[in-house]
Simulated scan of single mutants.
Amino acid sequence: MTSEKLEIVQTEYQAGRVAFESGLYAQAIQSLETATGLVDRTSRLGGEVQMWLVTAYEASGDTERAIELCRKLTHHPRQETRQQAKRLLFILEAPKLSIPDEWTVKIPDLAALDENKSISFQANPNADIKYAKPKPVVEEPVDLSQVNTKGNQFVWVALMAIFLTLAGLAWLS
């Protein structure tokens, strides 16, 4: 591969990656397909470009093309590319789970709005917002006539048990 051709491949590959990461999947596919057409598909760089192309196909909703290319990459000469393709193919062919509507959040499409228009996200713009003040915590005074001040003899029983234990150990030794 000539250095000019390699430079074009690198430029298109980088442009495809940047477009993909920006969410411009159609542009990413176009750049990555151009790079794929110019690069040796069996090389390391060729495998990388094609793996990015698989993810761009999937992101754009063209799952069939993504699976088809991914199956071809499972036979790539480089072991790393083959393993990556097998993992990705497993994910692509996995059954799609259905998610109940109550588990999802609907995000409004703001792309159609003018840049000059502002959006109010308040439910009712005319409603007065009232904040509840927290009530201070007031502790009730303790009635000392209700408190049990009589000892329950526990301390004396514990002291006696300790004394007997020590006396028993002294006698046995």
Score class of each variant (00 low, 15 high):
G61P: 14
K133W: 04
Y25I: 00
K106Q: 15
E7Q: 12
N124S: 14
T74F: 00
E139Y: 05
A26F: 01
A66C: 12
S173N: 11
A127D: 15
L97E: 14
L159W: 07
N148G: 05
E21H: 06
T11R: 13
I8D: 14
T36M: 01
A66H: 07
T2L: 11
S173C: 03
I162M: 11
E4F: 05
L113E: 15
Y25T: 08
Q146I: 06
G23W: 03
T63A: 13
F121H: 08
L88V: 04
D114I: 00
L164R: 05
I29E: 05
V137G: 07
T55K: 15
V18E: 09
R17Y: 03
G47Q: 10
R41I: 13
Q14K: 10
C70V: 01
I29C: 00
H75S: 09
L24V: 01
M1V: 11
R87K: 11
Q27V: 15
D40L: 10
K133T: 04
I67A: 04
F90S: 07
L166H: 04
I107S: 06
A56W: 06
Y25E: 04
Q27F: 04
E7W: 02
L38H: 07
E115W: 07
A19V: 11
D62W: 05
N152M: 00
I162T: 12
P141G: 05
A19D: 09
I99C: 14
E4S: 12
T42I: 10
F121V: 13
R65Y: 00
A161R: 07
L110S: 11
E64S: 08
Y25S: 01
T42E: 14
V142F: 07
A94K: 14
K135N: 10
A132C: 05
A127F: 11
W156C: 03
E4H: 02
F163G: 13
A56D: 13
L73R: 05
C70L: 03
L92R: 04
